[in-house]
C-alpha cells in the first residue's frame, strides 16, 4: 500500500504558513462583537419603530408573551448556533425539527397570550407589520450566518434553516412588544410567517454560506 507521501506534509505546512487563521479566542471575540452589533441594530430598529406599544393587552401579559417568544428564540439559537459536544453540530433531524416546529410553537404561544381578540387588521397593517418583523429579524440572521459561515461540513442547509427560524423568532419577540394587534390572523401573517420565510432563506443560503469548503 502506498502511504502518505512526505511531500504532502511539506506542501500542507507551506500552505498553512501562508494562510492566516484565527485562534479560538479571536473567533469568540469577533462573534461576540458581531452578535452584540446585531442586537444593537435590532434594538435601534425597534425603538425607531416606536418601541413598546401595549394596546388592549396589559403590560404584564405583553411582557409575558414576548418572554415566551424570546425563550423559544434563545433555545433555538443556543441549539443551532453552538455546535454542542461534536464538531459536526446537532443532528440534521434536530435542526430540521427546530426549523419546522418553531413557527407553529410560537403561533400557539402568541394565540394563547393574545388576550381579548381585537378587530382584524387590514392588509396594509399586515404588510407593514410583516415588513417590520423582517427588518427586526434581519440583523440576527446576518450575524448568525456570519458567525457560522464556512463551518459546516455535514448539513449546512439544515443549519441555515434552524438559524433562520431563530432569527425570525427574535424578530417576532420584538414585534410582539411593539404591535398592539392581537388578532390571530394578524399574528400568523405578520408576526409568525417571517419565521418560515427566514427558515427558507437560511436553507437556501446555507449551502453557499455555511458549508465548509
Amino acid at each position: 500500500m502506498s502511504g502518505l507521501r512526505p511531500q504532502v506534509r511539506a506542501l500542507v505546512f507551506s500552505a498553512v504558513r501562508a494562510t492566516p487563521s484565527a485562534s479560538r479566542r479571536e473567533v469568540g471575540r469577533r462573534n461576540a462583537a458581531r452578535l452584540g452589533l446585531a442586537a444593537l441594530v435590532a434594538l435601534a430598529e425597534f425603538f425607531a419603530l416606536g418601541g413598546s406599544v401595549y394596546g388592549a393587552r396589559s403590560v404584564g401579559l405583553t411582557l409575558f408573551s414576548a418572554a415566551g417568544w424570546g425563550l423559544v428564540a434563545l433555545a433555538i439559537t443556543r441549539l443551532s448556533l453552538v455546535r454542542g459536544p461534536s464538531m459536526l453540530g446537532r443532528p440534521t433531524r434536530a435542526l430540521l425539527t427546530m426549523a419546522v416546529a418553531c413557527a407553529p410553537i410560537v403561533f400557539c404561544w402568541a394565540a394563547a397570550t393574545a388576550g381579548a381578540q381585537g378587530a382584524s387588521a387590514d392588509w396594509g397593517l399586515h404588510a407593514r407589520c410583516l415588513g417590520a418583523t423582517i427588518l427586526l429579524s434581519a440583523p440576527p440572521f446576518v450575524a448568525f450566518l456570519y458567525a457560522r459561515r464556512h463551518s459546516d461540513p455535514v448539513h449546512p442547509a439544515a443549519l441555515g434553516a434552524a438559524l433562520g427560524a431563530a432569527s425570525g423568532a427574535w424578530g417576532g419577540a420584538l414585534i410582539d412588544l411593539h404591535c398592539p394587534v392581537t388578532h390571530v390572523a394578524h399574528l400568523g401573517a405578520a408576526h409568525v410567517m417571517p419565521i418560515a420565510l427566514f427558515a427558507l432563506a437560511g436553507a437556501a443560503l446555507g449551502k453557499r454560506v455555511l458549508s465548509l469548503r
Binding site: L4, V8, L11, V12, A15, V16, T19, S21, A22, S23, R24, R25, E26, V27, G28, R83, G84, P85, S86, M87, L88, H150, S151, P153, L212, R213
Partner: peptide, 24 residues
Amino acid sequence: VQQTMLRIHTARGSFQQGAQVMPW
C-alpha cells in the same frame, strides 16, 4: 488530505473544547 488539513487550519478557531477532531 492537503485540502482537508488546510480547512482544519483555517477553521481551527471554531474547534470546540473537548470535541473530537477525527469525525470532523
